[in-house]
Every structure is written in structure tokens, then in C-alpha cells.
């Protein structure tokens, strides 16, 4: 896809997020919307996968360690062709595959996540196995900024640096907000880039909504220098829906009918 097409897809995915959280009556639109541009660039520009063969051995692996942004993951999977968009209506419904947090019963979901801090270790394990076998798969993780407060994250960062897993890339969705408010007020994580570099990671800081920058940084991966890559994506929680932007309250709340109509009107059009 061209950058213009990617932007169009990102807009579609934002509509999908609003659609499914509204239908479910609950869910996490805020962080889903902030991660949308990276997720779009990853799934529709970079990722090696066969949606019609989800278990294809040669596929790259993706783990959403911030599992609560399941809506953006489901939208990327459906738009990639893993399952029909009609399944959006089943989000969070009785017995559905599309749980509130990802379950690997869903085609395209590698790992069930939701307990923050756990995903990066798992991607480290997958990358370690590939390194051992000499396979050339790539390994992606999506982390939240608040999630960096979890101790296990730093254990996993240390391990990835130590084992020189340069086929691992994590996107840190740095929207600056978590459930209880501003990340820096709840438990400061700055200076994040310095910390990551100190853990032997290569760090790229980008505007997490600038599609060209995201594509460029993904194109530089893997670098083959023994360092895993962290993209610190400076993002806006709720990006694309004016009344959700930069509002911690939209972390885990679904739009009502009125809000839904307003959001969809704002997201109408192509880009």
C-alpha cells in the first residue's frame, strides 16, 4: 500500500473501532485510536503473513502486550482478511472469539494478552527460538506507555538486549495517559528513550500519527546490529475523534448513540 492508501485504511480502522465498541457497549477506544496508525503501517505495509493460512510457519509474529486495545487488533485482522468484518458485532458477546482482551482462539491472534507487562517476554521467547533455528521471521510487540511501569517489561527489555535479538521490534504507544490520568503524574517513566538505550535497544522516536515516518522506521527494520528496536510513538489518546482526544476517561468507555454518530461523522471521508 502507498502512504495515501495506508492513511485511508487507518481512517477505516478508526471507524471500525468506534463501530465495534459502540455495538459492544464497552471496550477501549482511547488506546486503540492512538495505536491505529502504527498498527495500520505494520499490518498493511510491513508484516509478512498469510491471513488465509494463519499458522503459516514463515509468518512474522505480533503480540499486543497492551491487550486492551483489542478493537484495533481485530479491525486490522478483519481488514487483512482473517475473518469477516461482520464479526465485529460479536465483540465482547456471549461465547465469542472476540473477547474484550485478545484470546488466541481468534485467527491471527498469536497470544492471549491483557495482563499488562507480559507480552514482551513472550515475543522474546519466540525470537529466541527463531534465532536458535536460524529462521528469519520478525517479531513485533505493541506496548503501552503506562505498561512501562510493570517490572517485567524491564526484565524482558534486558533479556532482548542481552540475547541480541535484533529481529524484535516494539512499538510503545506513548500517548501520555493511563486509566488514572497522566503517566508522568501516576508514575513517571521519562526519560524513556534514555532508559531503553541503556538497556541496549535502538530507539526511534517518531510522531506516531505520521504515516510516512512510521513506514520509514519500519523499512529500516531489521537493522542486523544486535540491537532490538523500540519505536517510541508520540501519540494522542483517542486520536481522530475530537471529544476523545487526550481524555483519560476514554481509556475504557464505549461511545453512546449520540457520541457514536458524532465520532463517525468526524471520521467520515477518506483521510
Amino acid at each position: 500500500m502507498t502512504v495515501a492508501e495506508l492513511k485511508k485504511m487507518a481512517r477505516q480502522i478508526r471507524r471500525d473501532i468506534i463501530e465495534m465498541t459502540h455495538a459492544a457497549g464497552s471496550g477501549h477506544p482511547g488506546g486503540s485510536l492512538s495505536a491505529t496508525d502504527f498498527v495500520t503501517a505494520l499490518y498493511f505495509h510491513k508484516l509478512r503473513h498469510h491471513p488465509d493460512d494463519p499458522c503459516w510457519e514463515g509468518r512474522d509474529r505480533v503480540i499486543f502486550s497492551k491487550g486492551h486495545v483489542a478493537p484495533v487488533l481485530y479491525a486490522a485482522l478483519a481488514r487483512s482478511g482473517y475473518f469477516p468484518c461482520a464479526e465485529y458485532a460479536s465483540l465482547r458477546q456471549y461465547g465469542a472469539n472476540l473477547q474484550g482482551h485478545p484470546c488466541n482462539c481468534t485467527p491471527g491472534v498469536e497470544v492471549g494478552t491483557g495482563s499488562l507487562g507480559q507480552g514482551l517476554s513472550v515475543i522474546v521467547g519466540m525470537a529466541l527460538a527463531a534465532k536458535l533455528d536460524g529462521r528469519d521471521n520478525l517479531f513485533y510487540c505493541v506496548n503501552g506507555d503506562g505498561e512501562m511501569q510493570e517490572g517485567q517489561i524491564w526484565e524482558a527489555l534486558m533479556a532482548a538486549g542481552h540475547f541480541k535479538l535484533d529481529r524484535v521490534l516494539t512499538f510503545i504507544d506513548y500517548n501520555g495517559l493511563q486509566i488514572d490520568g497522566e503517566v508522568e503524574k501516576v508514575m513517571g517513566i521519562a526519560p524513556l528513550a534514555d532508559k531503553l538505550r541503556a538497556f541496549r535497544w535502538h530507539v526511534a522516536e517518531v510522531d506516531g500519527h505520521d504515516m510516512q515516518s512510521l513506514v520509514d522506521v519500519l523499512d529500516e527494520f531489521p537493522r542486523g546490529d544486535g540491537r532490538p528496536v523500540a519505536i517510541i510513538g508520540h501519540t494522542i489518546k483517542g486520536k481522530g475523534v475530537s471529544f476523545m482526544e487526550n481524555q483519560a476517561g476514554w481509556h475504557g468507555k464505549a461511545p453512546n448513540d449520540e457520541e457514536y454518530a458524532k465520532a463517525m461523522a468526524e471520521l467520515a471521508g477518506e483521510d
Binding site: S121, V124, G125, L128, A156, M158
Partner: peptide, 18 residues
């Protein structure tokens, strides 16, 4: 993995996934 037991469980999960 060093003194990091929970990280070990996660890495083991990833290894087993393959």
C-alpha cells in the same frame, strides 16, 4: 535469564509457541 522468574515464564511460553 538472570534473576527474573516471571520473564522466564513468558520467554518459555514464546519458545513453546514455536
Amino acid at each position: 535469564v538472570g534473576i527474573a522468574e516471571t520473564n522466564m515464564m513468558g520467554i518459555a511460553s514464546g519458545l513453546a509457541a514455536t
